[in-house]
Each structure stands twice: as C-alpha cells, then as structure tokens.
Design a protein around this nucleic acid. Structure first.
Lengths: 129, 129
DNA sequence: GTAGAAGCTCGAGTACACTCGAAGTCAAGC
DNA sequence: GCTTGACTTCGAGTGTACTCGAGCTTCTAC
C-alpha cells in the first residue's frame, strides 16, 4: 500500500468533513473509484482528499448537490471543459450575488446595533443624572 | 380603516415574502398583534411590514428562526436592550465570518475558472495550429 | 481467544423552514 | 342567487443534506 493512502477517518479529518459525509458523497457519485482493501475498507489517496476538499468548498459556498453531480459527471466526459467552466462561472456569480446581499444585510444589522448602543448609552447617562 | 393598513397579499409583496411565510411567522410568534377585520382577515400596518422586512433580512443573512424567536421575545420585555444588542452583535459576527469564508471560496472558484480558461485557450490554439 | 476499535451496508430518521391541500367563510359583481 | 376570488384554519407534506442505528466483519493488542 502506497504511503499516500488514508483511512476514511484520516480522509474525513484531512478534508474537514464527517465519515458519514464521505460515504454519502460516494453514494451520490460525487466521489468515484475510491480504492478498497481486500476486506472492503476504503482507502483515500491525497488526490481523493483534495477532491473532497473541493466538493466541500463548493457545498459550503452554496452549490447544491445536484449541480455538483452534474459537474462531476462532466468531469468524466472528455471535451466538456467549456461546460464545466460555465458551470463554475455561474456558481461564481451566485456567490458574488450572495456576498453583495450579505453586505447589505450586514449594514442593516450594524445600523440596528448602533441604534441600540446609542439608546443604551443614553439610558446609562440618564441613570447617572 | 386607516390608509396604512394592507391585505396579506399586499404585505407579502411589499416585504418580499410569501403569504404562507407571513402566516408561518405569525404562528411562530415572530409577528404579533396583527390586526383583524371583523371577518377574521389580517390587516398589516406599515410598521408590521417594516418588521417583516427586518425578519426577512435576518433570515436571509442566516439567523435561525429559533434565535429570531428569542430576539422577538426580548423585544416584548422591557430592560432587555443589552441582551438584544448582544444577540445582534453575535449574529453580525456570524455574518462577517460567513463573508470571509465566502471570499476564500470565491477565490478558489475563480482560480479554477482561470485554470479552465487557460486550458481552453491552449486547446483552441492547438486546434488552429 | 477475547475485548475493543474501526470499518462495512442498508434503510430509516432528523432538522429546518417552509409549503400545500382540504374544507370552509365572506364580500362584490353580474 | 350564484360565481369568483381573496381570505381563513389545520394538519400533513416537501426538499435538502445529511445523520443515525442495527447488525455484521475484521484487525490489533493483551
């Protein structure tokens, strides 16, 4: 067994996901051709782990499992570079929009916090009077 | 009926949520003391709508219903300004963390897009050779 | 040779935030 | 007077992405 093969626990820790998630992704076809020992135990390569990290990054940034499935299946078809790239570009735009929305929401929250801080300061002042 | 009272449909449109969501929020106690006509139909004031917009902003920025419930119940208790403010501050930090994470994810996605663009350009070049 | 840790499969269960459907009421317009 | 459309309640259903539990195997250490 090459030195760069890892148990499911090691892979989960390295990629920052749970063991259950690794099995789930494999079941959903997001993670393919994971090696097995003769006893059936999975063994993950560094490349597998890097791929899981990528999947995790896409998930955390809000890409649905379905879109990821589509991306993965394109990765197994040659000549689909443009489609894959477009898929990523679409997702990038979604992420950018989400960040813009979050920025506006953040400002709204901060203005409400400022309002409370003012009110609380005024109240403290009054108490001291 | 004062002129600033709106039907549930108008309120939903104005606040950017569905009618079902308005009723759900009311049921969950996020939205209280909504006026009713004698026939039982709800009537929303401009203030109610502004409050729904605030709820919606919090939800969209990721605050769970449970936290919002806690915030709302504090709003009905006098002398809880500090707690309410702390709750908002905690959420603000969560939002900031989420934006920072999204920024990192965005960069990763963009570097992958750049990689594809390069590969596709090289491929086009090869096809022209 | 046995305890304990780690792995396996499979189907079912969970959490969250809505969302829907059935059955009914009510007012306005034709 | 009857249809239409907007509203009501209530309980049940949905979608997403995991997450868990049961029952089993397999390896290592004592």
């Amino acid at each position: 067994m090459p030195q760069d093969m890892h148990t499911i626990q090691e892979a989960a820790d390295a990629a920052g996901v749970t063991i259950a998630t690794l099995r789930y992704y494999e079941q959903e076809g997001l993670l393919r051709d994971i090696q097995r020992l003769p006893n059936g135990h999975r063994r993950y390569s560094d490349q597998d782990i890097a791929w899981v990290e990528f999947l995790s990054c896409m998930r955390e940034s809000g890409m649905p499992i379905q879109a990821l499935k589509r991306y993965v299946s394109l990765c197994y078809q040659p000549g689909t570079g443009r489609e894959r790239c477009d898929l990523l570009t679409d997702h990038r735009d979604v992420v950018k929009d989400k960040m813009a929305a979050l920025q506006i929401q953040l400002e709204r929250i901060e203005s409400k916090i400022a309002w409370y801080e003012d009110a609380l300061a005024a109240q403290a002042l009054e108490a001291n009077a």
